[in-house]
């Protein structure tokens, strides 16, 4: 595993845990959290493509 992937995984877990705590939940679904992360990244890429297009 590459270091950037390991750090990103750790960051996603921490973010999901903090979000769950803020929402008063005592657990979260790992795959759902990573799906949200992948969707956010997709939105970033789509936005960048739209901005770059003339």
């Amino acid at each position: 595993m590459k270091v950037d992937v390991a750090l990103s995984l750790a960051s996603a877990l921490r973010g999901a845990a903090n979000k769950a705590i803020a929402e008063g939940k005592d657990e979260f679904d790992l795959m759902d959290a990573l799906s949200d992360e992948a969707e956010d990244a997709r939105d970033e890429l789509v936005d960048a493509i739209q901005e770059a297009q003339p």
């Binding site: 950037d4 992937v5 990103s8 996603a12 992360e37 992948a38 890429l45």
Partner: peptide, 11 residues
């Protein structure tokens, strides 16, 4: 989890 995370990283 690492594969799914890598998807976000490459995007």
């Amino acid at each position: 989890a690492p594969v799914k995370t890598r998807l976000a990283v490459v995007r």
